[in-house]
Design a protein around this nucleic acid. Structure first.
Lengths: 349, 349
DNA sequence: GGTGGCAGGCGAACCGGTTCAGCCGCGTCC
DNA sequence: GGACGCGGCTGAACCGGTTCGCCTGCCACC
């Protein structure tokens, strides 16, 4: 348990004042190049690492951002989405030597409380908002607090801070047109949680696209994203008198569950039923047949979100309220691409 | 953007000194009950939340623990294990108002560097060590550093800090005996990463248990835990001349992949092949047939690990080096239970 | 009534950085 | 030769808590 060395140790070792050491280490003017070099050498030799708390206290910056997830232990585990997102966020953050603080919460109230506490404690410099809902209460709350934030999802009308999102409209069209071309006329969609923004966006995109084609029916059933519900809904859909020849799922977990149900019912895939998944985690390639899915690069998405948050925080520090318009920018990522695999095929005559 | 209020604000509002406020807020003696009540009331009214950096700086405690994961973005996402573990850890931490800092690293060197930095920055009060390997270099490194840590896995010979683990020996026996009873004599196991401690433990447990029964063959093939390798190995196993009638997988992702391969090869499950998975995430119940698996409560496991780390940190603070023997305790969790499902059945004659 | 003990509270130092006013020495310019 | 400017560095204040020594006033006791 070696003692941690402080800036004062370096100062005495170098025969200069604490202030000079601080200037030297932070690359600021105020010391000559020769003394700077000497100080840096001594610091490196002694293995100096600044104490975060002390720095945070002076500059009142935490060098940390936070993410609060409002999902249960079980559902958060199966969704590869979150870990991939976090992983992408992390890669950008650690490049900028920022830390990530994670908190899992149960309710909206808890989540808001976490933000308030983080803000009051100066524990984080900014946060990511996941699972953006339609009319999300968190948006105004966070904005009122003055806590820098980036919405992981969008677009958001009249947003008071940046949002990063994928265009979901084009992929919805791609999927429907693809299925239409394969001859499917009776299509069902197992959608995600109804309150979520992207669910609403996809709902609308499907409806509008379907209107332009000549489907017999395009039904949407909402779910909670869990495999259980995915299976249950699929079972219901497939046992109806006029069952669909293709089902589109809003995530990969439900698609896998749906495939399981189809197997259970003895349906041949893709001959008797085509399956499309949204979000192409490795999961989609583990099944047989492999799932046709909408591929998005979630880690890259996370990176982009982190970039947005870091620039927002940086901007906050440099420019002042005049630069407000710069904060509300939104960033659109490349839309997902459809990756056809074995789970989709021509509709049976 | 309301101003954050400080202890000094409360002091002036209450007409006392900063010191008195500190005593009052921390429930320490030094103030009368009446002034304490007054101070608490004022603090609550003003919505006071202490600045973490300032507190950390004085008491040199971060109220935060860290976890570094050394996996790639893709593989970390599919493994429900990690998120479930983190979720469990979180639930205990937030109850003790501790934060969790997460970092994803690429190499061992990076991971060690992260620990060193966290320690030097006083950024965390302790860490969790995941994916414990045989002869893990991190153990001595962390112990030498004097950074409190809990090993998520074990048991570890001559450990210098606590380890929390599940007994893997009994489950291995349970699985083999179960398969034996079903009439399987030719069993294969797709094991995890060879360097990991629990892989070694299971390797040995299988070998020893198998020796006591009368199997024709019990082969073990090691993998990297990914679905790709799981599929590849399964394909090889099933296309060999003397193919196994049952395959045991060391995680759920590979088991799902194996099931996919079996489907692909047209094998009826469980008639022609029985499949057993380790770690019963919801994934195991999504497939058809559902996977027989070894159920462990991973969130509870995470909670236990967090408890161990918190008591270790607490103990560190209260007692001194004399209490060293208390640090090296190990904690064994309830072993996993076998949950038979549709993927296992009697061996074909 | 003088004294000791003690609860209650004050003021200042401290944690380890950052930052700013100010000082010193040197070169430059008028 | 004196005023000025400026690079280089020091010393001290400051961030917002915690903690410790010490002072005060009150009560009990001899």
């Amino acid at each position: 348990m070696t003692r941690r060395i402080t800036i004062a140790d370096i100062a005495t070792a170098a025969g200069v004042s604490k202030g000079a050491v601080s200037y030297a280490l932070n690359g600021r003017p105020g010391v000559s190049e020769t003394t700077r070099a000497k100080i840096l050498a001594i610091a490196a030799e002694m293995g100096f690492v600044p104490n975060r708390a002390a720095r945070s206290l002076s500059v009142s910056t935490a060098q940390t951002v936070g993410i609060a997830l409002r999902r249960t232990a079980r559902t958060i585990g199966v969704e590869p989405y979150f870990m991939e997102l976090i992983s992408g966020i992390e890669s950008t953050l650690s490049a900028g030597s920022f830390g990530l603080t994670l908190q899992i919460v149960g309710t909206l109230e808890e989540e808001l409380e976490v933000y308030r506490r983080w803000w009051a404690e100066r524990r984080v410099d900014g946060v990511f908002l996941c699972d953006i809902g339609t009319g999300d209460q968190r948006l105004d709350f966070i904005a009122d607090l003055g806590l820098p934030a980036v919405a992981v999802g969008g677009p958001i009308d009249g947003a008071r801070f940046p949002a990063v999102w994928h265009d979901d409209v084009a992929p919805c069209r791609d999927i429907l047109e693809y299925l239409y071309t394969l001859g499917h006329r009776r299509v069902a969609r197992v959608a995600g949680i109804p309150g979520l923004l992207h669910t609403a966006i996809r709902d609308r995109a499907y409806t509008e696209t379907a209107a332009g084609l000549h489907f017999t029916s395009v039904a949407t059933v909402h779910s909670d994203y869990t495999g259980e519900q995915g299976a249950q809904i699929t079972r219901r859909l497939l046992s109806s008198s006029k069952r669909p020849t293709a089902i589109v799922y809003d995530n990969d977990v439900m698609a896998v569950a749906g495939l399981g149900v189809a197997h259970e019912l003895g349906l041949a895939i893709p001959e008797q039923l085509s399956i499309v998944a949204w979000d192409d985690s490795p999961l989609c390639r583990l099944t047989h047949p492999a799932l046709t899915s909408l591929t998005r690069d979630i880690p890259a998405y996370g990176s982009t979100c982190a970039d947005a948050l870091l620039t927002l925080i940086g901007a906050d520090k440099d420019t002042d309220p005049p630069g407000t318009e710069a904060r509300t920018f939104s960033l659109q990522c490349m839309p997902g691409q459809l990756s056809p695999r074995g789970s989709t095929g021509p509709a049976q005559a």
